[in-house]
Nucleic acid binder design. Structure first.
Lengths: 150, 150
DNA sequence: CTTAATAGTCAAGAAATCTTGACTTAGCAG
DNA sequence: CTGCTAAGTCAAGATTTCTTGACTATTAAG
């Protein structure tokens, strides 16, 4: 393993490993708990041992065997799973941002109503604004979410 | 499009779309700026128009044409790009956490040295501990990072 | 000793993916 | 009107991926 590969994954290798519905199923199932060959076979409903063998071998770099002889995800497998979540949670980032914005507005109105223009209000305003700033950066710059209607 | 598909992506569809080195190259290049067919061809160094056509068609759901007739990433394409970043940044999460931990310790030592046991110190301690708690949750629970040596 | 279960392996064929390169259509410059 | 570039399309063959199903080796129960 080269210096570079030690700290970063080849994304096409990982995407290749999870670009089949059965392999995604395997990954998600193993994230819940370690399973042996036949347990896994039953859990994900594959009839053919050959098929399970084939797909497990395609995912070798994401999976290890633990002390019971059961399959478990390793760190690469967990990274792949996180990537799956990123894809599957797409679409909720927008509403999550809008919810945050709503909480921000309501919180500040509520604090103003109770404490008026005190130092408490100022602290809450500064902190919540910092949070909103960070969250906006994360949403629109890092995640490139857009609020446009589809 | 069903109600479900409107808000979430089929992960194997997206992973299939980005499970080839050339397609990842295309995605990253288009994230930088929109490009036309021949511009893209030159930018990513493919000789064959057929190959570019083939791979662009495989990525149809991630890419749109803008008003200039250039290719641009749509929201799905951006989600796919974020997934790529998740995979490629794997390995740095661990050191990022350790760096945070170091800053946490140094900050609190420094504040104690300057303000002793005052309410300032308490506020800094509470806030920095909250941050560390959140960051630990994110790192070890959500991202399933482990500190074990490989 | 037989039966059944676990944990696979492997070869062969079917199906899909990918590359190559020739071809098209349209616009613009000289 | 000739040549050049952009922006593709498409068929054919090469290469991979995936499925099927038969087979093996080991353990444990009855």
């Amino acid at each position: 393993m080269t210096e570079k590969e030690e700290f970063s994954l080849n994304s096409d290798e990982v995407f290749d490993a999870v670009s089949h519905p059965l392999r995604i199923k395997i990954l998600k199932r193993l994230a819940k708990s370690p399973l042996g060959f036949s347990e896994l076979k039953r859990a994900i409903n594959v009839e053919s041992s050959g098929a399970l063998d084939f797909h497990l071998k395609k995912m070798q770099s994401l999976i290890e065997s633990n002390s019971d002889g059961r399959y478990v995800l390793n760190d690469k497998g967990s990274a792949a799973l996180e990537a799956i979540h990123v894809i599957e949670q797409y679409g909720w980032q927008k509403r999550s941002f809008l919810l945050n914005l709503l909480v921000y507005v309501l919180l500040n109105i509520w604090v103003l109503a109770i404490f008026s223009f005190s130092s408490y209000s100022l602290v809450v305003f500064v902190l919540s604004t910092l949070w909103l700033g960070f969250y906006s950066y994360w949403t629109f710059i890092r995640r490139r979410v857009s609020l446009r209607q589809k």
